[in-house]
Protein backbone atom coordinates (compact mmCIF):
# COMPACT_ATOMS: atom_id res chain seq x y z
CA UNK A 1 0.00 0.00 0.00
CA UNK A 2 1.41 3.36 -1.02
CA UNK A 3 0.49 6.82 0.34
CA UNK A 4 1.64 10.34 -0.52
CA UNK A 5 2.49 11.11 3.12
CA UNK A 6 2.21 9.73 6.61
CA UNK A 7 -1.01 11.66 7.21
CA UNK A 8 -2.54 10.07 4.11
CA UNK A 9 -1.93 6.65 5.65
CA UNK A 10 -4.20 7.22 8.69
CA UNK A 11 -6.96 4.60 8.88
CA UNK A 12 -7.38 1.61 6.50
CA UNK A 13 -6.58 -0.68 9.45
CA UNK A 14 -6.74 -4.48 9.31
CA UNK A 15 -9.68 -6.43 10.74
CA UNK A 16 -8.43 -9.76 12.06
CA UNK A 17 -10.40 -12.79 13.21
CA UNK A 18 -9.81 -14.26 16.66
CA UNK A 19 -10.15 -18.03 16.13
CA UNK A 20 -9.18 -19.00 19.68
CA UNK A 21 -11.22 -16.42 21.60
CA UNK A 22 -14.32 -16.85 19.41
CA UNK A 23 -16.67 -19.25 21.22
CA UNK A 24 -17.95 -21.10 18.12
CA UNK A 25 -17.87 -21.03 14.31
CA UNK A 26 -21.22 -19.19 14.44
CA UNK A 27 -20.21 -16.61 17.03
CA UNK A 28 -17.06 -14.90 15.89
CA UNK A 29 -14.94 -12.04 17.24
CA UNK A 30 -13.04 -9.62 15.01
CA UNK A 31 -10.40 -7.13 16.14
CA UNK A 32 -9.88 -3.85 14.27
CA UNK A 33 -6.21 -3.06 14.77
CA UNK A 34 -6.20 0.70 15.33
CA UNK A 35 -2.69 0.42 16.80
CA UNK A 36 -1.55 0.27 13.16
CA UNK A 37 -2.13 4.02 12.79
CA UNK A 38 0.94 6.33 12.57
CA UNK A 39 1.23 7.09 16.32
CA UNK A 40 -0.16 3.73 17.32
CA UNK A 41 -3.71 4.58 18.35
CA UNK A 42 -7.27 5.07 17.08
CA UNK A 43 -6.98 8.76 17.99
CA UNK A 44 -4.98 9.54 14.85
CA UNK A 45 -8.28 9.47 12.98
CA UNK A 46 -9.98 12.09 15.16
CA UNK A 47 -6.89 14.29 15.49
CA UNK A 48 -6.31 14.47 11.74
CA UNK A 49 -10.01 15.07 11.02
CA UNK A 50 -10.27 17.86 13.61
CA UNK A 51 -7.17 19.67 12.31
CA UNK A 52 -8.23 19.40 8.64
CA UNK A 53 -11.73 20.61 9.55
CA UNK A 54 -10.33 23.61 11.47
CA UNK A 55 -8.07 24.44 8.49
CA UNK A 56 -11.02 24.29 6.10
CA UNK A 57 -13.01 26.60 8.38
CA UNK A 58 -10.00 28.93 8.72
CA UNK A 59 -9.98 28.58 12.49
CA UNK A 60 -6.37 27.44 12.22
CA UNK A 61 -3.83 29.74 10.60
CA UNK A 62 -0.15 28.90 9.93
CA UNK A 63 1.93 28.77 13.11
CA UNK A 64 -1.07 28.70 15.43
CA UNK A 65 -0.96 27.08 18.88
CA UNK A 66 -3.34 24.22 19.61
CA UNK A 67 -4.58 23.44 23.11
CA UNK A 68 -6.20 20.13 24.10
CA UNK A 69 -7.25 18.34 27.29
CA UNK A 70 -6.18 14.70 26.86
CA UNK A 71 -5.36 11.61 28.88
CA UNK A 72 -2.69 10.87 26.31
CA UNK A 73 -3.53 9.30 22.97
CA UNK A 74 -5.35 12.26 21.44
CA UNK A 75 -2.51 14.51 22.53
CA UNK A 76 0.08 12.23 20.94
CA UNK A 77 -1.94 12.07 17.70
CA UNK A 78 -2.43 15.85 17.65
CA UNK A 79 1.27 16.40 18.33
CA UNK A 80 2.17 14.30 15.29
CA UNK A 81 -0.39 16.04 13.06
CA UNK A 82 0.57 19.49 14.40
CA UNK A 83 4.24 18.85 13.63
CA UNK A 84 3.40 17.85 10.05
CA UNK A 85 1.11 20.84 9.52
CA UNK A 86 3.21 23.51 11.28
CA UNK A 87 1.42 24.15 14.57
CA UNK A 88 2.47 24.23 18.23
CA UNK A 89 0.59 22.05 20.72
CA UNK A 90 -0.09 22.50 24.43
CA UNK A 91 -1.66 19.44 26.12
CA UNK A 92 -3.41 19.45 29.47
CA UNK A 93 -2.97 15.95 30.87
CA UNK A 94 -3.87 14.46 34.26
CA UNK A 95 -0.74 13.65 36.29
CA UNK A 96 -1.94 10.06 36.92
CA UNK A 97 -1.12 8.82 33.42
CA UNK A 98 1.72 6.54 32.32
CA UNK A 99 5.21 8.03 31.87
CA UNK A 100 5.39 6.83 28.26
CA UNK A 101 2.59 9.20 27.27
CA UNK A 102 4.57 12.19 28.47
CA UNK A 103 7.70 10.88 26.72
CA UNK A 104 5.85 10.46 23.42
CA UNK A 105 4.28 13.92 23.65
CA UNK A 106 7.74 15.40 24.18
CA UNK A 107 9.17 13.44 21.23
CA UNK A 108 6.60 15.02 18.90
CA UNK A 109 7.27 18.45 20.35
CA UNK A 110 4.18 19.07 22.49
CA UNK A 111 4.24 21.06 25.71
CA UNK A 112 2.51 19.42 28.70
CA UNK A 113 0.61 21.17 31.46
CA UNK A 114 -0.39 18.73 34.19
CA UNK A 115 -3.79 18.78 35.87
CA UNK A 116 -4.35 17.26 39.35
CA UNK A 117 -4.84 13.48 39.56
CA UNK A 118 -8.02 13.81 41.62
CA UNK A 119 -10.92 14.27 39.23
CA UNK A 120 -9.09 12.67 36.26
CA UNK A 121 -9.97 14.00 32.84
CA UNK A 122 -12.70 16.22 34.32
CA UNK A 123 -9.95 18.32 35.83
CA UNK A 124 -7.97 18.35 32.56
CA UNK A 125 -11.05 19.67 30.76
CA UNK A 126 -11.59 22.32 33.43
CA UNK A 127 -7.94 23.47 33.38
CA UNK A 128 -7.91 23.55 29.55
CA UNK A 129 -11.07 25.65 29.42
CA UNK A 130 -9.45 28.12 31.84
CA UNK A 131 -6.28 28.30 29.70
CA UNK A 132 -8.39 28.81 26.57
CA UNK A 133 -10.07 31.81 28.20
CA UNK A 134 -6.68 33.26 29.23
CA UNK A 135 -5.13 32.70 25.79
CA UNK A 136 -7.73 33.71 23.22
CA UNK A 137 -5.28 33.19 20.32
CA UNK A 138 -4.86 29.48 21.16
CA UNK A 139 -7.16 27.07 19.34
CA UNK A 140 -8.82 24.35 21.40
CA UNK A 141 -10.16 21.70 19.00
CA UNK A 142 -11.90 20.07 22.00
CA UNK A 143 -12.26 16.37 21.20
CA UNK A 144 -15.27 15.94 23.51
CA UNK A 145 -17.48 18.30 21.55
CA UNK A 146 -15.94 18.53 18.07
CA UNK A 147 -18.25 16.95 15.45
CA UNK A 148 -15.20 16.24 13.23
CA UNK A 149 -14.10 13.64 15.81
CA UNK A 150 -17.26 11.53 15.33
CA UNK A 151 -17.40 12.33 11.61
CA UNK A 152 -13.98 10.71 11.07
CA UNK A 153 -15.52 7.44 12.26
CA UNK A 154 -18.74 7.96 10.30
CA UNK A 155 -16.78 8.51 7.10
CA UNK A 156 -13.96 6.00 7.58
CA UNK A 157 -14.05 3.53 10.48
CA UNK A 158 -17.70 2.57 9.89
CA UNK A 159 -17.42 2.03 6.12
CA UNK A 160 -14.15 0.08 6.59
CA UNK A 161 -15.92 -2.27 9.02
CA UNK A 162 -18.92 -2.84 6.77
CA UNK A 163 -16.72 -3.46 3.72
CA UNK A 164 -14.52 -5.98 5.56
CA UNK A 165 -17.36 -7.68 7.49
CA UNK A 166 -20.71 -7.33 5.67
CA UNK A 167 -22.21 -9.87 8.12
CA UNK A 168 -21.37 -7.70 11.17
CA UNK A 169 -23.99 -7.92 13.95
CA UNK A 170 -22.28 -6.05 16.83
CA UNK A 171 -19.76 -3.24 17.18
CA UNK A 172 -17.99 -2.75 20.51
CA UNK A 173 -15.73 0.19 21.40
CA UNK A 174 -14.54 2.20 24.38
CA UNK A 175 -16.49 5.16 25.68
CA UNK A 176 -14.22 8.15 26.29
CA UNK A 177 -14.92 11.16 24.13
CA UNK A 178 -17.65 8.93 22.62
CA UNK A 179 -16.40 9.90 19.13
CA UNK A 180 -15.76 6.35 17.87
CA UNK A 181 -19.12 5.00 19.09
CA UNK A 182 -21.11 8.03 17.91
CA UNK A 183 -19.55 8.06 14.44
CA UNK A 184 -19.65 4.31 13.82
CA UNK A 185 -23.06 4.09 15.53
CA UNK A 186 -24.54 6.77 13.26
CA UNK A 187 -22.97 5.10 10.21
CA UNK A 188 -24.63 1.78 11.00
CA UNK A 189 -27.95 3.44 11.90
CA UNK A 190 -27.93 4.91 8.38
CA UNK A 191 -26.53 1.87 6.57
CA UNK A 192 -27.22 -1.33 8.54
CA UNK A 193 -29.53 -0.42 11.41
CA UNK A 194 -29.76 -3.93 12.89
CA UNK A 195 -26.12 -3.74 14.06
CA UNK A 196 -25.92 -3.44 17.87
CA UNK A 197 -23.66 -0.66 19.16
CA UNK A 198 -22.06 -1.58 22.49
CA UNK A 199 -20.08 0.77 24.74
CA UNK A 200 -17.40 -0.42 27.17
CA UNK A 201 -16.68 2.24 29.73
CA UNK A 202 -13.57 1.96 31.92
CA UNK A 203 -14.31 1.96 35.64
CA UNK A 204 -11.37 3.62 37.36
CA UNK A 205 -10.29 3.77 40.98
CA UNK A 206 -12.03 6.10 43.38
CA UNK A 207 -9.54 8.93 43.03
CA UNK A 208 -10.75 9.55 39.49
CA UNK A 209 -14.34 10.01 40.65
CA UNK A 210 -13.29 12.48 43.34
CA UNK A 211 -15.67 15.26 42.38
CA UNK A 212 -16.38 17.98 44.91
CA UNK A 213 -20.07 17.85 44.04
CA UNK A 214 -22.29 16.09 41.57
CA UNK A 215 -22.86 19.20 39.48
CA UNK A 216 -19.23 18.83 38.33
CA UNK A 217 -20.12 15.64 36.49
CA UNK A 218 -19.26 15.53 32.82
CA UNK A 219 -20.95 14.10 29.73
CA UNK A 220 -19.19 14.78 26.40
CA UNK A 221 -21.18 17.11 24.17
CA UNK A 222 -20.84 14.51 21.37
CA UNK A 223 -22.72 11.86 23.36
CA UNK A 224 -26.09 10.77 21.98
CA UNK A 225 -27.48 7.93 24.08
CA UNK A 226 -29.98 6.95 21.36
CA UNK A 227 -27.14 5.61 19.18
CA UNK A 228 -26.12 2.95 21.72
CA UNK A 229 -27.73 -0.44 22.25
CA UNK A 230 -26.14 -0.91 25.65
CA UNK A 231 -23.30 0.27 27.83
CA UNK A 232 -21.05 -1.73 30.19
CA UNK A 233 -18.78 -0.55 32.96
CA UNK A 234 -15.56 -2.62 33.11
CA UNK A 235 -13.17 -2.53 36.04
CA UNK A 236 -9.36 -2.84 35.90
CA UNK A 237 -9.23 -6.50 36.93
CA UNK A 238 -11.40 -7.69 34.03
CA UNK A 239 -9.60 -5.30 31.67
CA UNK A 240 -6.16 -6.66 32.59
CA UNK A 241 -7.35 -10.29 32.50
CA UNK A 242 -8.72 -9.85 28.96
CA UNK A 243 -5.68 -7.87 27.80
CA UNK A 244 -3.55 -10.85 28.85
CA UNK A 245 -5.89 -13.37 27.17
CA UNK A 246 -5.71 -11.42 23.92
CA UNK A 247 -1.91 -11.63 24.08
CA UNK A 248 -1.78 -15.26 25.22
CA UNK A 249 -4.38 -16.74 22.86
CA UNK A 250 -4.27 -14.51 19.79
CA UNK A 251 -0.82 -12.89 19.98
CA UNK A 252 -2.18 -9.34 20.03
CA UNK A 253 -0.25 -6.99 22.34
CA UNK A 254 -2.81 -4.33 23.21
CA UNK A 255 -3.25 -1.59 25.80
CA UNK A 256 -5.48 -2.08 28.83
CA UNK A 257 -8.51 -0.19 27.47
CA UNK A 258 -8.72 -2.83 24.72
CA UNK A 259 -9.03 -5.49 27.43
CA UNK A 260 -12.09 -3.67 28.79
CA UNK A 261 -13.62 -3.62 25.29
CA UNK A 262 -12.82 -7.31 24.75
CA UNK A 263 -14.49 -8.11 28.08
CA UNK A 264 -17.73 -6.51 26.87
CA UNK A 265 -17.38 -8.24 23.47
CA UNK A 266 -16.97 -11.65 25.13
CA UNK A 267 -20.06 -10.95 27.26
CA UNK A 268 -22.07 -10.30 24.09
CA UNK A 269 -20.60 -13.43 22.51
CA UNK A 270 -21.63 -15.56 25.51
CA UNK A 271 -25.19 -14.21 25.30
CA UNK A 272 -25.34 -15.07 21.58
CA UNK A 273 -24.14 -18.62 22.28
CA UNK A 274 -26.73 -19.03 25.07
CA UNK A 275 -29.49 -17.77 22.76
CA UNK A 276 -28.24 -20.09 19.96
CA UNK A 277 -27.86 -17.09 17.66
CA UNK A 278 -25.03 -16.42 15.25
CA UNK A 279 -23.01 -13.24 15.64
CA UNK A 280 -20.10 -11.38 14.04
CA UNK A 281 -18.77 -9.08 16.74
CA UNK A 282 -16.21 -6.45 15.73
CA UNK A 283 -14.33 -4.47 18.36
CA UNK A 284 -11.66 -1.78 18.45
CA UNK A 285 -8.07 -2.41 19.50
CA UNK A 286 -7.43 1.19 20.63
CA UNK A 287 -3.67 1.01 20.94
CA UNK A 288 -0.74 -1.32 21.53
CA UNK A 289 0.64 -2.20 24.94
CA UNK A 290 3.91 -0.28 24.54
CA UNK A 291 2.75 2.83 26.40
CA UNK A 292 1.71 0.77 29.44
CA UNK A 293 4.82 -1.35 30.01
CA UNK A 294 5.93 0.87 32.89
CA UNK A 295 2.65 0.27 34.73
CA UNK A 296 3.52 -3.40 35.25
CA UNK A 297 0.16 -4.73 34.06
CA UNK A 298 1.73 -7.41 31.85
CA UNK A 299 3.65 -8.98 34.73
CA UNK A 300 2.86 -10.69 38.01
CA UNK A 301 -0.51 -11.72 39.39
CA UNK A 302 -3.84 -10.12 38.54
CA UNK A 303 -3.93 -8.72 42.08
CA UNK A 304 -0.60 -6.98 41.55
CA UNK A 305 -1.71 -5.60 38.19
CA UNK A 306 -4.95 -4.35 39.69
CA UNK A 307 -3.03 -2.62 42.49
CA UNK A 308 -0.68 -1.06 39.94
CA UNK A 309 -3.63 0.53 38.13
CA UNK A 310 -5.32 1.89 41.25
CA UNK A 311 -5.75 5.64 40.82
CA UNK A 312 -4.31 5.53 37.27
CA UNK A 313 -6.15 6.68 34.15
CA UNK A 314 -5.50 3.39 32.37
CA UNK A 315 -7.79 3.93 29.38
Amino acid sequence: MRFDSLLDSVGHTPLVGLPRLSPSPDVRLWAKLEDRNPTGSVKDRAALAMVLDAERNEILTPGATLLEPTSGNTGISLAMVAKQRGYQLVCVMPENTSVERAQLLAIWGAKIIYSPAAGGSNEAVRVAKGLAAENPDWVMLYQYGNPANALAHYENTGPELLADLPSITHFVAGLGTTGTLMGVGRFFRDNKPDVSIVAAEPRYGELVYGLRNLDEGFIPELYDESLLTTRFSVGPRDAVRRTRELLELEGIFAGVSTGAILHAALGIAAKAVAAKESADIAFIVCDGGWKYLSTGVYEGSLDEAEDALEGQLWA
Partner: peptide, 10 residues
Amino acid sequence: ITILPAVAGG
Protein backbone atom coordinates in the same frame (compact mmCIF):
# COMPACT_ATOMS: atom_id res chain seq x y z
CA ILE B 1 -25.57 -2.43 41.89
CA THR B 2 -22.86 0.20 41.33
CA ILE B 3 -23.54 3.94 41.52
CA LEU B 4 -21.01 6.29 39.89
CA PRO B 5 -20.91 9.95 38.93
CA ALA B 6 -20.47 10.67 35.20
CA VAL B 7 -16.87 11.79 34.55
CA ALA B 8 -14.79 12.50 31.47
CA GLY B 9 -12.79 9.74 29.80
CA GLY B 10 -10.66 9.97 26.65
